[in-house]
């Protein structure tokens, strides 16, 4: 048997500039729903049916609002093409940025680690106390759920 090939898309859900605050959260179920609806809208019945197998959305880190989308290779193009078109989730204005598309979770993990480290370095320069820095580091580099998913 040939194994089922998948694509993992790492995305960042950002609030628009008007609503920017640290407490901004969106449930991962509603991201799933928004993506599925948008695919239905743009690609129609065929698109909606094509992506249904193996379509999963999970948060990697809720604080940094980074999530991954799993889709089958081939129909994943239906998903990636509608990601820039999503404007609202749960009635909140958002925009979704694609960070990386990988074939294995391991590759996504390697990329994400580097990405978060870069971001952390940038934020750390603005903080003064060591405590704040270590707290931020803990929050941002928390990829445990991701590691669990790999195993």
């Amino acid at each position: 048997m040939v194994r089922v090939k998948l694509r993992y898309i790492v995305v960042e859900i950002n609030p628009t500039r008007k609503q920017q605050s640290s407490e901004f959260t969106v449930k991962h179920v509603s991201i799933f729903q928004a993506l599925a609806d948008q695919v239905q809208k743009i690609h129609g019945d065929f698109g909606a049916a094509a992506i249904r197998a193996g379509f999963v959305v999970r948060y990697i880190n809720e604080h940094t609002r980074i999530a991954f989308i799993r889709a089958r290779k081939g129909p994943h193009r239906f998903v990636t093409s509608v990601i820039p078109l999503i404007k609202t989730i749960e009635g909140k204005e958002v925009f979704i940025t694609t960070l990386y598309t990988g074939a294995t979770l391991r590759q996504c993990y390697i990329y994400l680690k580097q990405y978060q480290q870069k971001k952390l370095d940038k934020f750390c320069s603005t903080l003064n106390t060591e405590e704040e820095k270590s707290h931020l580091k803990e929050v941002m580099l928390n990829l445990d759920s991701f590691v669990n998913a790999i195993q």
Binding site: T16, R17, T80, S81, I83, P84, E93, T97, T98, L99
Partner: peptide, 17 residues
């Protein structure tokens, strides 16, 4: 509007349409 600007990698996938 700034909210309508996407990053270049998103545009790559949008090109499929």
């Amino acid at each position: 509007n700034l909210n309508l600007i996407r990053n270049p990698y998103d545009i790559l996938s949008l090109g499929f349409l």
